[in-house]
């Protein structure tokens, strides 16, 4: 049986490092899809505050994260003692186009 798809979107609210147009378009595509998802204002902030919700967000299921560089996301989770599952897919809104990110996010799990 396929695991349910879980999508986590980071809005990177407190910095201008993710292109605004990209994150807005990815968010629009997500909200207009039928996919349920979690959206957080800023993963860095959650990591800094040791937010226990990160553990849950990384828990089971087929996890896809729209945020920034995969290496940064991996170690942000690690900083709160949470290991991202090896199957987690991190999509980079700093470098990739909104189309590419949204397409991968909304792709049904294999």
């Amino acid at each position: 049986m396929t695991k349910p798809l879980r999508v986590l979107y980071c809005h990177c609210t407190y910095a201008n490092v993710v292109p605004k147009a990209t994150k807005e378009e990815v968010l629009r595509r997500l909200t207009e899809s039928d996919v349920p998802f979690d959206a957080v204002p800023d993963l860095c902030e959650m990591s800094a505050k040791k937010d226990p919700a990160l553990a849950d967000l990384a828990a089971d299921g087929c996890l896809k994260i729209a945020a920034c560089y995969p290496r940064a996301v991996k170690w942000l989770f690690h900083a709160v003692g949470v290991k991202l599952p090896d199957t987690a897919e991190v999509l980079n809104m700093r470098t990739d186009t909104a189309d590419a990110v949204a397409a991968k996010l909304l792709e049904p799990p294999a």
Partner: peptide
């Protein structure tokens, strides 16, 4: 959802 995030609120969109 955009306005909630801008206000620093975490959101779960439940379909």
């Amino acid at each position: 959802v955009t306005a909630l995030l801008a206000k620093g609120l975490s959101v779960s969109v439940i379909r």
